[in-house]
């Protein structure tokens, strides 16, 4: 395993998460556009996946036995790019090309242009089906690799998510771990006001999933949940990660507005100071 990705302890992961947030903010400010809030809310989850849980080889992105991570909420591309870069898939200096003409770092992840991106996403609601197909394929090949799929709480208003939820339960995909970033916000406002999803835990349970409900910005809780998911047999697991949108930067936290706008240079300066 790549030394950069080797897990040491919770503090190591917390520091990594901080580094990931710094990269997210820097690349967004440089790009001048992109999705800040949902990248920051899921930073702790993605950090735990890439630097603690995922069985992968950044130097060999096509390694057959790797675990897979599917970013169903593709607009959190800056988060994916940050964890990929810090894992060693490509040079961190590439991050500043985000959203620029000719860059492999497309506005939403494109698997054709960037190694480490398993499949192109950006249109919400599609990732879980893809993850299921991968999970089935891995099982057919007798591999014990696992599939992680990150969704947004607004995203689960998409009907296809629930089609896929049924499929995963029906085919007993216990190598599947979905994670819902429950930051409570979507573009037009709070999820509860736009179109409520509660009781979200009961929904997943009713669809045949094992449900783990956690504070999704608590690294310790995330690590424990990821471990627990692995021991669930005969059914898929969903981690309901209750997070704060914009987490880590006080003036972005809990603000609907910062879903899809990038920090200005001035905001970046203040944000980096807070993260220090």
């Amino acid at each position: 395993m790549n030394p950069a990705t080797a897990y040491r302890d919770i503090n190591f992961l917390r520091e990594k998460a901080k580094a990931v947030r710094v990269e997210i903010l820097k690349m967004l400010a440089e790009a001048g556009s992109g999705h800040t809030g949902g990248s920051l809310s899921a930073t702790d989850i993605a950090t735990a996946i890439y630097f603690y849980k995922l069985k992968h080889k950044p130097e060999d992105p096509g390694w057959r036995e790797r675990d897979r991570f599917i970013l169903s909420k593709g607009h959190a591309a800056p988060l994916l790019y940050a964890v990929l870069a810090l894992s060693g898939y490509f040079d961190v200096s590439l991050l500043k090309t985000l959203r620029k003409l000719g860059s492999p770092l497309q506005g939403h992840p494109s698997s054709k242009s960037l190694p480490g991106v398993e499949v192109s996403t950006g249109s919400l609601g599609q990732g879980l089906s893809i993850a299921n197909g991968i999970a089935i394929g891995l099982k057919m090949d007798g591999l014990d690799s696992r599939v992680y799929c990150l969704l947004g709480d607004g995203e689960i208003q998409e009907g296809q998510v629930w089609e896929a939820a049924m499929t995963a339960a029906h085919y007993r995909l216990d190598n599947m771990c979905a994670m819902v970033d429950l930051n409570g916000l979507q573009i037009d406002g709070p999820v509860s006001e736009v179109k409520g999803i509660e009781p979200v835990d009961m929904k997943w349970k009713a669809f045949g999933w094992h449900v783990i409900d956690i504070d999704g910005n608590d690294m310790d809780a995330i690590v424990k949940a990821l471990d627990a998911a692995e021991s669930v047999k005969g059914k898929p697991t969903v981690i309901l990660a209750r997070t704060l949108k914009g987490k880590g930067v006080s003036f972005f936290e809990g603000k609907v507005k910062y879903h899809g706008i990038a920090p200005t240079q001035e905001e970046l300066r203040r944000a980096l100071k807070e993260l220090e």
Partner: peptide, 27 residues
């Protein structure tokens, strides 16, 4: 063992087929 009925959910079927292709299967 190589047939998957996805039920009345065509969008999910296409997505699942996509995932299978990503593991080298020919769906």
């Amino acid at each position: 063992e190589r047939f998957y009925n996805i039920g009345v959910s065509e969008q999910d079927m296409v997505g699942t087929a996509s995932g299978l292709s990503l593991t080298g299967k020919l769906p």
